Amino acid sequence: MSASLAGMHPLADALALGLLAGLALALPVGPVALLVVSAGLTRGFRVAAGAALGVAAVDAAYAGLAVTVGGRLAAALDGHLPLVRTAAALALLGVAAHGLRRTLATPSAAERAAVLPATVLPATARPELAQSARAFGRFVALTAVNPLTALAVASIAVALGPHLAGPARFAFVLGVAAASAAWQLVLAAAGSVLRARLGPRARTAVSLAGHACVVVLAAVIALG
């Protein structure tokens, strides 16, 4: 690997490694991925896109830590893993409870309007930007305490940290961000496609199933 990075195009090599690492972080279907799909299903693509970019931002930040702090990050996480697991499980349970309550609640007039085509709604009835920003913040916090992401980045730190220096680190982090954002946006789009094609009862059933899976995964994380 070090020989590859020492070749004619070290920045391109680092970018390619970042893309592969970003896909390795993003592709496994876990609780956060399920919640991104659920956001697209229940809130539409624009809000889900905010959530997707929040996940990608944390993946990129963790990648930056991985290539600068390296093995020290892995050691620090290993020493506090029970606390990280507990915090992650509680965060996931909170998000799942909020999602289940929202799914089961009787839709308000504003929520009923949200499922209408955007072309028939006035601009004041579509605060997607604010909702997207809130989704971004929620998913930044949720992904930051997810031990699965943290442990995956710690592994990357041990493997790649010593082989990346200077501008190559920036190229690597850029690759991670691009790959993670691309995949998370695919999940957001998948949820929004289901939103458009499924009826209200089917959307409710899928959303309930997704949040129930998050509850199960929270229990698995808490139990180690």
Rank of each mutant, 00 (worst) to 15 (best):
A48W: 15
A49Y: 13
A52R: 10
G54Y: 00
V55M: 08
A56M: 07
A57S: 14
V58S: 07
V58R: 15
A61G: 05
Y62W: 08
Y62Q: 02
A66K: 06
V67M: 08
G71E: 09
A76G: 08
L77N: 02
G79S: 08
R85Y: 04
A87Q: 05
A87M: 09
A88Y: 08
L90K: 06
L90R: 05
A91C: 11
A91T: 11
V95K: 01
V95Q: 01
A96M: 04
H98I: 06
G99P: 04
A110G: 02
R112N: 02
L116V: 04
L121E: 02
A123E: 15
A123M: 10
A125G: 00
R126K: 10
R126S: 00
S132G: 13
G137N: 03
R138S: 14
V140M: 14
T143H: 08
T143M: 12
P147T: 03
L151W: 03
A152I: 03
V153D: 00
V158N: 12
A159E: 04
L160D: 11
A165E: 15
P167K: 02
A171Y: 02
A171C: 09
V173E: 10
V176I: 07
S180P: 09
W183Y: 05
Q184I: 09
L185Q: 12
A190I: 00
G191S: 08
S192V: 13
